[in-house]
Design a protein around this nucleic acid. Structure first.
Lengths: 140, 140
DNA sequence: CTAGGTGCAAACATTTTGCATGGTT
DNA sequence: AACCATGCAAAATGTTTGCACCTAG
């Protein structure tokens, strides 16, 4: 029995392996820019000929989020942005001109955040850092 | 000629001093929990007898944001949250059970963020940190 | 008096949901 | 076969906008 990575991920998450779920997961895995809105995913599906509804995209992405396969961000406010959860819980920096997104992860900061939460009387569960800046393209 | 703090702030921002703007600014200044959605502000206005429309609340808050009087947050995604911009650009920790919000500011982290942005090729303009946790009420 | 502000209702954008149909195990 | 998933369209949210009227300067 052959099994793609995508379908294995779905099974591990306790989700039935259906065409829409596999397609959406593959889009998230293969997109060069892997920060996608539901609309982006929907358009990608259309482009590859699927006739999957936008409602299903939202449903599936929400299930993926609940299953821990995907993370939902609210970078600017308009629409939610989804990306595959690689397990490293990285943070983001967004270029205010081009929308380019880069990722980073910093132990020093995370240690400090834990301390800060404790000082304020909280048990830290999760965090989200978004930096806003201007990307300086050095190739120019 | 007498002048309240609110109306001075409005003038400095280049905004005409109108009743809706003054009322909204005062609500933002006086609310005990100063992280408010547009709806929250609207309800507070109703409670004090004003008949200011929700559309005006949105318009005024957006103008305040443009004028730098107010900051807009997207803590969870549903609705935008507004708070008076005190100029210190602090960050937030939100209790996932009660919705309680606390604030903090940490030089060490901000310095590190600046470095990270530079390493990735960005000029840092702004940042937003949201911590999610559980508040441990010690008074119990 | 005049430019700009406001209220209301309608328009919008995004996301969610009800329901009948269809697909997976 | 049983149950869950899907598509479609309608509803629900949150926010913005057009327009006639009103108000601060």
């Amino acid at each position: 029995m052959t099994q793609t990575t995508s379908s294995r991920d779905l099974k591990n998450a306790g989700l039935k392996v259906t065409l829409p779920r596999v397609s959406i997961l593959e889009i998230l895995e293969n997109a060069e820019q892997h920060h996608l809105s539901a609309e982006d995913v929907y358009k990608a599906l259309l482009k590859q000929g699927s006739d999957i509804g936008l409602a299903t995209v939202y449903r599936v992405l929400t299930q993926f989020e609940a299953a821990g396969l995907v993370t939902r961000h609210h970078f600017d406010g308009g629409q939610a942005i989804f990306e595959l959860d690689t397990g490293d819980n990285h943070d983001h920096i967004v270029c205010m001109k081009t929308g380019k997104v880069s990722e980073f992860k910093d132990e020093q900061i995370e240690k400090r955040l834990l301390e800060i939460a404790a000082e304020l009387g909280y048990s830290l569960t999760d965090h989200k850092i978004i930096l806003y800046g201007i990307y300086n393209d050095k190739s120019k």
